[in-house]
Design a protein around this nucleic acid. Structure first.
Lengths: 151, 151
DNA sequence: CTCTTTATTTAAAATTAATCTCAGAATCTT
DNA sequence: AAGATTCTGAGATTAATTTTAAATAAAGAG
């Protein structure tokens, strides 16, 4: 688990640069996010997981920590229109922001790590003079599994 | 204002097809959305506008009407991560879903009506077997105006 | 070390968006 | 007009998130 420690150390230095500390609670939050990096956890879900595996923590702290990490660009905050925000780590080796495929039928969320938008961002820059720094892209539709079942 | 009436009549028939009526409240809601089609109003903002300009209405009715219009695909429901959903009409002559450019500096939201994603949707279909029915795309960045001011 | 300052956490209270309830109003059907 | 259906609106309710105020922990100065 060398990789995880490297990631945490990396985040610690980002926090330090912003004049913030990596407290035990923040460490536990980041660690739990790392261990669930393919999921899209809500603050409550994360709170429950941290309490179960890591350490005792208050819900407000989870919210505050997520807000900080979001502000620093360390986590993504996504809203799938299901009533709450969901969070996932933007891992440093991923390089690119990722996209989501949200299945209307089974509700599954699939991640797409390819950056599909390089051409499109170029177009936005040329046509509108808008300099893209980030994006949120969610495709709604029917996933491969549900398509197969349908037939 | 011929155009507006045509749009409203169009929406009325869509409601009728779903067995619903265009009540005065729903008409006022749609009308206010039409008059503010470039904005991205929250339910509360819309509620206030309708009360000011059109007619007396209850907040619950606004929420219910927006939900209906959303289900029928008449309005888009968008979340800019600012704590509430925002709505805008999907005008019939627009054809395609639209995208948004959200400026980090001045907060302005600009609409993009071109469908930039046809190729990307094709790619998603081929690579992941995922059939896209809709999408949400928000670009975060710096708008042309703010870029100009910076220099 | 110890005092002081500052940042952080926590539980509880407050706030806020959104939904639900249900009685009454409007509309439609026959 | 009676009866059925749909719709509205005030207020209650729920659930996510934020704030508050007091306690704790950590960091820095002397």
């Amino acid at each position: 688990m060398e990789f995880l420690e490297t990631q945490i150390t990396d985040i610690e230095s980002q926090l330090h640069q912003a004049g913030l500390k990596l407290t035990p609670q923040r460490r536990a939050t980041v660690s739990t996010l790392l261990h669930n990096c393919e999921k899209h956890l809500s603050a409550e879900e994360l709170f429950t997981l941290i309490r179960k595996k890591e350490t005792d923590i208050g819900l407000a702290t989870v919210y505050r920590t997520l807000e900080i990490l979001f502000e620093l660009g360390i986590v993504n905050k996504i809203n799938f229109e299901d009533g709450m925000s969901r969070y996932d780590l933007r891992l440093s080796d991923q390089g690119h922001f990722h996209h989501h495929l949200l299945c209307n039928v089974c509700g599954k969320v699939q991640e797409v790590h390819e950056d599909l938008l390089l051409d499109v961002e170029e177009e936005v820059k040329n046509k509108f003079g808008f300099e893209v720094t980030d994006h949120r892209l969610i495709f709604h539709g029917i996933c491969a599994d549900c398509l197969a079942k349908k037939k």
